[in-house]
């Protein structure tokens, strides 16, 4: 696994006369083997930053480096892989799960090797390898998101970018996907940029957190530090907005016990 570094990255859309700066001089490091959470409201540029890293959005200035080398944005070998928000639109409805997962596998392996690799990846995300022959229509949202994770891992990535991967899922499934992310990170030592608007989710999976607001990063640091002692007003606002995290709540909360009995 390698370190991903955004160095003063700016992304601009629109025409020369009316440019719109979606990402404005962002510098951010995802250390090797660590999960960095990126939080911010919609329109803050967090998804654009992710899309710029994988070549889906044009970079106006700045650099995105992987262990000091520019990230390849073209060609067959992609050390950066991305998992998308909506598992219902991120899998081709006409391709079997196996074909979808096999797609990013680097070329040069035989058919049997690819099939074996697909089975290994599906097992890694706790899916029965027999789903390889199924079409995505037969899978639930949580299962699809597991397939999307397996597909990202098939590209043998150095860094995985997860863009709001749980926000389209039911809460009961969200927990399972978050557990999986943590497990994969622990077992494979994945470096990961984990984008979310939910601070509680970021707190659960990430060791570092960066807060993005209007295209800039306004605060970053270790999770405990940022969440316990926020420096920027927007971070404080975000913290106050986490449901169940307000000093004065409408209803009294019973003391929380972890193991329900």
């Amino acid at each position: 696994m390698k370190e991903l570094r955004f160095d003063d990255v700016t992304v601009r859309y629109g025409t020369v006369r009316r440019p719109f700066t979606a990402v404005d001089g962002v510098s951010l490091v995802v250390p090797a083997g660590q999960v960095v959470g990126l939080v911010g409201e919609s329109g803050s540029g967090k998804s654009t930053l992710a899309r710029a890293a994988v070549g889906l959005a044009p970079i106006h200035s700045g650099q995105i480096l992987l262990d000091g080398q520019p990230v390849p944005r073209r060609g067959r070998v992609r050390p950066l892989q991305m998992v998308f928000q909506d598992p219902y639109s991120s899998l081709d409805p006409r391709m079997t799960i196996g074909e979808s997962v096999a797609e990013p596998i680097p070329p040069g392996s035989s058919r049997a090797e690819r099939r074996e690799e697909v089975a290994r990846l599906l097992a890694l995300v706790h899916l029965d390898p027999s789903v390889a022959t199924a079409l995505p229509g037969r899978l639930s949202g949580g299962q699809r998101q597991r397939v999307a994770l397996a597909r990202a891992l098939a590209g043998q990535p150095q860094v995985v970018i997860a863009d709001e991967i749980t926000s389209a899922l039911d809460v009961s499934i969200q927990g399972a996907v978050l557990n999986l992310v943590r497990e994969l990170q622990r077992e494979l030592g994945l470096s990961m940029l984990f984008i979310s608007h939910n601070l509680a989710v970021v707190r659960y999976v990430a060791s570092h957190v960066a807060v993005m607001y209007e295209g800039r990063i306004v605060e970053q640091g270790p999770v405990e530090q940022v969440l316990v002692d926020p420096q920027h007003d927007y971070t404080r606002e975000l913290l106050a907005a986490v449901p169940g995290n307000r000093p004065t709540s409408a209803t009294p909360h019973a003391p929380r016990t972890r193991s329900t009995s």
Partner: peptide, 9 residues
């Protein structure tokens, strides 16, 4: 899914 394929190279 087309974006995903592009990211996959």
């Amino acid at each position: 899914y087309v974006s995903a394929a592009r990211v996959a190279g």
